[in-house]
Computed example of a mutant assay.
Amino acid sequence: MTSLESKAKAFLQLHVPGDPGVFPTVWDAWSANIAVSAGFSALTLGSHPVADSVGRSDKEGMTFAELLTRVRQITDVVDVPVSVDIESGYGLEPAQLIEGLLEAGAIGLNIEDTVHSEGGRLRGAQEHADLVHGLRQFADAAGVHVVINARTDLFKRKDGDDSDRVDRAIERLKLAAAAGADSLFPVGQHADADMRRLTSELPLPISTVAQPGVSEKAVLADQGVARITFGRFLQWALTEEANRLLNRWK
């Protein structure tokens, strides 16, 4: 079995601006096996689809322990790099988060700046960067270059004025980059000009969420995106198809 450090290095090399790595977002061993059998060389776990799969709500309605159970079930059956959305960290310390992820066989993480355990407040830009720095320190101490995808929810939350939101996101994500992130995730749907600003002005590969049946990889590649995941949209698309099939039998 490939070592965690080798998987982490291989995963990071797939983040190529203009030739983005596509990492299907899965939620259990079944969906992970489907994605690997389809030829994908790395996977992501999304908090929303995982929570749905265990009967919990998104926004840290499940515990970190419940999430790690799912991670282990997936890493037990596929031997590809797996990155995990750990939401805002479940109120845990960076050492606990890194230790849990590595023990479960994951080599990457998303960390967002909405603090669900504290009423959904937005972390300060430096506060979020400090968390990224802590995660990097403990990952380095463990000997695995855990791939940190630093997320901001500024666009999703629509905090502040529209006029300078891109500027504020860039400032926030630059701090995360300096703190040790490997890729940056300005989550949300962006106008073409805004996405091009983000990919050209930020110093690290940019991650985005695509809708499997709607988005076009070539368009995102032309915008300079380096990492594509599906968030909740793959699970939703499969749900629609399941409903279509089941409705035939009512």
Rank of each mutant, 00 (worst) to 15 (best):
L122M: 15
F138G: 00
E103S: 13
D52F: 08
E66Y: 03
H133N: 15
A65S: 14
V50F: 10
I34V: 14
R136Y: 07
E103R: 07
G55Y: 06
I74Q: 01
S47E: 14
G91N: 10
L131A: 08
V50Q: 06
Q73C: 09
F40C: 02
R56I: 00
I34T: 08
L109W: 02
G108Y: 11
V115W: 08
T69D: 15
L101Q: 06
L43W: 07
Q96H: 03
S37E: 15
Q137R: 09
Q96A: 13
L45H: 13
D85R: 02
V115G: 03
G119R: 02
T75V: 08
V80L: 07
G120C: 04
V54N: 03
A51D: 13
V132A: 01
V54Y: 02
G143R: 02
V36L: 05
H116G: 08
D113C: 03
G124I: 02
G143D: 08
G39C: 11
L45W: 14
D76G: 03
G119H: 12
E99M: 07
V82M: 06
G108W: 02
A42E: 15
L67E: 05
D130N: 10
V54P: 03
S83W: 02
S117W: 06
S57L: 13
S53E: 13
S57F: 08
R70E: 15
P94N: 07
E87T: 09
H133K: 15
V77D: 08
L102T: 09
E66I: 10
E127I: 03
L102E: 14
R72K: 09
F40K: 00
E118G: 02
T69A: 12
G134H: 00
G119L: 05
V50G: 06
T114G: 09
G55A: 09
R70H: 04
G89L: 03
V80H: 07
M62L: 15
G61P: 01
G124M: 13
L102I: 12
E103G: 11
R72C: 03
D52Y: 12
A104L: 06
T63N: 12
H48I: 07
Q73G: 14
D140Q: 13
T63Y: 01
L45N: 12
D79T: 06
L67Q: 03
N110L: 13
R70C: 12
I98C: 05
Q137E: 15
A35C: 09
I98M: 07
P94W: 05
P49M: 10
H128W: 11
Q96P: 01
Q126H: 10
L135K: 06
R123T: 13
F40W: 13
F64G: 01
S53G: 09
V78S: 02
E118F: 12
G108I: 05
I74S: 01
L131C: 12
E87A: 01
G55M: 10
